[in-house]
């Protein structure tokens, strides 16, 4: 079984200038290891939509690799996105699914089933590549080749669950983070700073 920290550390080694969209527990570890926060989006306020947001970025910026750091519980809430992504077939899309079998953020309740093989599901939907890793050495040795192959690819990572028992802080600043990150990423990708304030947080 792989730890969140090791998975994020290894993934970051091969990231290059890819955009990342992360959600749930892995976000805090990704934020710790990422050297390019201007290319990172943390979705804490729209559970399950990481894969769909990442798909839009991948389609809109086809020259840029997009890494979606998804979670098993989140993907179950948006399972149809596997078919949507496979149909759109962006070759710059890499879909990492951190599988811990629980709802970690809410205290560790079990998913409806832990029997889902997300790599097989992606393959059945038509992803170009699908992989499943439960040890860090295999993940580390395989990632360079996976990321050099065309996507869409789903890389399932079996991780040790880390249930959160103290809840999640909800502050004005924490809710304003994603809108600010999205604006920064648009500016980075387009070179234009034209997305003004909007919504309750900006």
């Amino acid at each position: 079984m792989i730890t969140y920290f090791d998975a994020c550390r290894v993934l970051n080694q091969y990231r290059s200038d890819a955009v990342s969209i992360s959600t749930m527990t892995q976000t805090k570890y990704w934020n710790d290891v990422s050297k390019q926060p201007d290319l990172d989006i943390s979705i804490g306020n729209a559970m399950s939509k990481a894969s769909s947001l990442a798909l839009g970025i991948a389609l809109g910026a086809p020259e840029r690799q997009v890494l979606c750091l998804d979670a098993d519980g989140s993907l179950l809430m948006n399972f149809g996105s596997l078919a949507t992504i496979a149909g759109a077939a962006p070759n710059n899309f890499y879909h990492f699914v951190f599988n811990n079998g629980i709802y970690g953020i809410t205290g560790g309740q079990p998913l409806p089933t832990v029997e889902v093989d997300y790599a097989k599901a992606a393959e059945a939907c038509g992803y170009t590549g699908s992989y499943r890793f439960s040890d860090i050495e295999s993940l580390d040795s395989s990632l360079p080749q996976i990321l050099s192959n065309p996507g869409p690819a789903l890389i399932e990572i079996i991780v040790k669950g880390e249930p959160e028992h103290d809840g999640v802080d909800q502050t004005w600043e924490s809710n304003a983070k994603m809108p600010m990150q999205l604006r920064a990423l648009r500016k980075n990708l387009t070179g234009v700073d034209d997305w003004g304030p909007g919504g309750p947080f900006l």
């Binding site: 809109g60 149809g80 648009r186």
Partner: peptide, 22 residues
């Protein structure tokens, strides 16, 4: 045309496209 499997995907996909300059 970008088809989605469920309507809840449409706004996030569009948001991603907008962020990418589309």
């Amino acid at each position: 045309v970008v088809p989605v499997s469920r309507e809840g995907e449409a706004i996030p996909v569009a948001a991603g496209l907008f962020i990418a300059g589309q």
